[in-house]
Write a protein that binds this DNA or RNA. Structure first.
Lengths: 237, 237
DNA sequence: GCAGCCGATTGACCCAGATCAAATTTGAGC
DNA sequence: GCTCAAATTTGATCTGGGTCAATCGGCTGC
């Protein structure tokens, strides 16, 4: 785990060409504030599989995902893993009350983040209620998603879980990259299983089943949604 | 569902004798602000089983639980239910982005809440970053609990779920009412099952099993923790 | 006190999804 | 292209917890 700063100008004006400027926490800042804000953070790169932070680590930074996908997860002492979410560009990570991260995060594929040391970030927020409000919005949105996911984990069948996952993931990609029936799945089957509270075998079998039904096609690095309506029907059931 | 205002003086100085003043959102307000704040809300009572708000209802109010217990849940179209949490005194309900509640809430036993109409509350927050910060803290705390619960729902066995629930619930009661090995369980077995992603039969069998092992005693309206350490061992396993 | 009801418990059986065990495919390094 | 390792798929079997079906027990109202 040896992250390195990407930009050649450590504190340069990199917000200008930041793809997530309009969507992330930054969207609450005006041009002058953004200029000041960018001096707080630095762009950092993580290679595939690298850990950005671990559960129980003291929180020293907040992170704004710029590019790539991260898995956010918790481990039980015996190694069982539950993925509590996937982070995509625009997601903001690191908020907590205890002073420690309450989940681990690692890169799925190449990831770039904007990293803000905790203390200066906290001071910056202090007199900018707009930014605090924005962060609160993000927390509330995540809370709502977390509750939806509890319903999935506690009350849905394997078929419903997989169908719901495919639709939800597609929706996030659509919001990010525009409409498409090709759904890229950068995470492994094990990641999907640990997200849905299933085993890798069940996920694999369910994918195969969906393919045999003709509603998806399994392609390299993802799936193609052949019959979104049927998948929606399976998810709702 | 016919809630009625409890206090005889609709906008009286009821914060003075409010049991949760120090713990709830209100803890972020000074005396003068509290005086102003109490004019925004009114104490409302709900009888056992009454619904405080429903999923998909337009949010018209925020709620601060004063007394009693509420179940917070989501329903699938076919009636399956997932309880996403239990609200206790000091909990703050109603935050959302969509303008609609994203879960339903009803009273388990008699409940008193402090109800704040959305618009004036929003205006009050506007120039009180302290209150916003407090609400943000509560949201982040809930988010952390939600993630813990995802781990439970997705990766723990029935025994672990029940043991974890008993310990977690006891901890909340202890924080509220002081230490005791008597754990009051005002919610039904069905509520517990829907919280843990189990059936009522499995919950019942697990309780009986714990009792036969001598680690708990099932008493009327709750359980007595005879051997907390063994229960903790079961929860961790 | 007792009839009726509702929640909780208990028992018998079943099945969705886990586990165990091979293939098979994919990909990275040479 | 070839080799090896890792990821995925597929098959066979098992089981934790669900489902179905009686009781049981404790209130409520008469």
């Amino acid at each position: 785990m040896k992250p390195f700063v990407v930009t050649s100008e450590p504190n340069g004006h990199f917000c200008d060409d930041c793809a997530v400027r309009g969507a992330a926490v930054c969207s609450s800042l005006n041009a002058a504030e953004l200029r000041e804000f960018e001096h707080l953070g630095r762009r950092v790169h993580f290679g595939s599989g690298e850990t950005v932070f671990s559960e129980e680590d003291i929180t020293t930074s907040f992170y704004n995902v710029l590019e790539g996908v991260m898995r956010l997860y918790k481990l039980l002492p015996d190694g069982r893993r539950q993925i509590v979410g996937f982070a995509l560009p625009g997601d903001f990570l690191g908020m907590n009350l205890s002073g420690r991260h309450n989940f681990s995060a690692d890169a799925i594929g190449e990831v770039n983040v904007c990293q803000f040391p905790k203390a200066p970030f906290g001071r910056f927020i202090e007199d900018r209620p707009q930014l605090l409000r924005r962060i609160n919005e993000l927390a509330i949105r995540e809370l709502s998603q977390a509750r939806d996911h509890m319903v999935l984990l506690g009350r849905r069948s394997a078929d419903e879980k997989v169908a719901t996952f495919l639709l939800g993931w597609r929706e996030r990609l659509v919001a990010l990259k525009g409409p498409s029936d090709m759904v890229a799945l950068p995470m492994s089957r094990q990641d999907i299983a640990d997200y849905l509270g299933l085993t890798i075998e069940t996920v694999s079998r369910t994918f195969t089943k969906l393919e045999r039904l003709g509603v998806i096609e399994i392609i390299h690095g993802g799936i193609s949604l052949l019959d979104p309506a049927r998948v929606e029907a399976m998810a709702a059931a």
